[in-house]
Design a protein around this nucleic acid. Structure first.
Lengths: 239, 239
DNA sequence: CCTTTTATAGTCATCACGACTATAAAAGGG
DNA sequence: CCCTTTTATAGTCGTGATGACTATAAAAGG
């Protein structure tokens, strides 16, 4: 922060890019927008936009989240800064530094195009390839970060509606990690962690499917998981 | 990233700020520089500087790291992006967005002032308060991040010289976490993690102190810790 | 030689967790 | 109306990681 007089500094454009995730039909989905103009016209990209003079990157990200999803209450969703991408050539037109965020939503209303004409669409994560700019990289980084945070935080409830079953919570883990988990063990672990979920006392239950109705839970007050809930080790890593 | 024509965008200055850590005399130290000009003249701050037109934030951080520490080989130290601080009022003069980094060094040569006249000094972490700008916050975030990464990565070796004893490695954990660890248990854990450390075969040993000479180890090839090495739970968190 | 200091080798009980099996409570189909 | 299917929930068992200790080894300093 020293040396204002020593170095010339080039002005940068600062943007935010959002990896907005949700779980839909047991699968991880991400919100993409179709670009209307060059460069990368017609290609899909992560939603985002410029940081305005009077707002922080966090404020800009939350504003963009509202514009692209059409959500009214934009204070609710979990929003988290990932990292900043600043390679000099990441935008062919000018020097753009982008602060990337991850947002987590419960299964959301079908996102129509935001305020601008560009249409937005929920896309299965595995189908979201070939994005504009370095957004493939940002999206992959975002998923890895979210997957890692599921291990040692209570973040999974951010994907769930206010009341949810343990089966739905387990689907969050399975969708983000791309693995399947043992149901009794998952249940034991979640219930053994105080403050992760609170049982809804009214013996409430969820209709709609076959099988025994499941008890409902709400997100608890805890934020961290001690000990963590580690993903299964696919390779020969020591268990 | 859409809407170049819709929104005006203000030019931002983009800087990097570095939290450079080392372990000195069993205590976590951080590199600070004394500001020579307003604002905050005479106060201490984290080293940093402007990102140049042709470099990424990572390149700028590594360049600044060399300038402030006087290190010749600047490719070696662990350098990691933390997050970006972008509150509109964080710099009283102009709109400055800062990408913060954490750097980890083995006990370093006494840092003299860098290329610019500002003097730099290693300061015990606990004495580094009242810094300029929002650097108190950045520094606290950096320490928390490093502490968390010690739990599930092999990052601790980045604080150590090429060859080190298990006692020195344990001091890294104790200094960053501010706790004390049981030595036999720490040893068992580290040696049970394949690839964390490799024994130096020549039965080498470290002189200088009293007591039985300790075996020497080198950093291994592993980068992650499975299962993690969790910090002791001070409160009533379930162990 | 004896104390101090540090490194290293164990022991033991507890607990978390993966892999299972078993039971309960619903829907649907003959 | 039984019987299969489906999903939720309860429990069991063995292994391995870990916290809390105790014991031994190898040096330095008086």
């Amino acid at each position: 922060m020293d040396g204002y007089d020593k170095y010339a500094f080039e002005p940068f454009a600062v943007t935010v890019d959002l990896a907005v995730f949700t779980i839909r039909a047991g699968t991880l989905h991400v919100l993409l927008v179709e670009r209307g103009q060059e460069p990368y016209a017609g290609q899909w990209a992560l939603p985002g936009g410029f940081v305005q003079p009077d707002e922080s990157a966090e404020s800009a990200a939350r504003r963009e989240l509202g514009e692209e999803t059409g959500l009214t209450d934009v204070s609710g969703p979990h929003l988290e800064q990932l990292r900043t991408y600043s390679e000099p050539d990441r935008d062919p037109r000018m020097r753009v530094v982008s602060v990337a965020f991850a947002a987590l939503l419960p299964d959301a209303p079908e996102a129509h195009g935001g305020s601008d004409a560009a249409q937005a669409r929920w896309t299965p994560y595995d189908c979201a390839r070939g994005l504009a700019f370095d957004h493939d990289r940002i999206l992959a980084d975002a998923r890895e970060r979210v997957g890692a945070k599921l291990e040692y935080t209570c973040l999974a409830t951010a994907f769930c509606p206010p009341e949810f079953t343990l089966g739905e919570l387990q689907q969050v883990y399975e969708a983000v990690w791309g693995t399947s988990l043992d149901r009794p063990n998952f249940r034991r672990k979640v219930l053994a962690t105080p403050g992760f979920v609170d049982a809804v006392p009214g013996a409430a239950r969820l209709t709609g499917g076959r099988g025994k109705p499941a008890a409902l839970y709400r997100a608890g007050a805890a934020t961290t998981l001690h000990p963590p809930l580690l993903r299964p080790t696919p390779e020969g890593r020591p268990a």
